[in-house]
Amino acid sequence: MSGRPPRQEEGESAKLRHKEELSRRIKEQKVVVDELSNLKKNRKVYRQQPNSNIFFLVDRTETLSQCKNTLDELKKAHQEMENSEKTKIKK
């Protein structure tokens, strides 16, 4: 029994980390969506190529919809995580 608790803790900590990461990204995404939605129509939007320093010009509305989608997904994941935790607690 002595072995289990620490491992569970580890798992929980990992989960926690994951959860934090998730919430952080959600916040981030929220900001992005707000910013994009508040942009003037003639503004240009650039998107950074991951792992590089180049920014590609992208369509504003398209990006906005994409960001909204990702935000929804993140929220879903977050919700699932919370639900699972609740069920665990209930048990």
Binding site: K44, Y46, N53, I54, F55, F56, L57
Partner: peptide, 10 residues
């Protein structure tokens, strides 16, 4: 061709 922002330094 693509319109991009070219980085000058970081």
């Amino acid at each position: 061709s693509y319109d991009i922002m070219v980085p000058f330094g970081p």
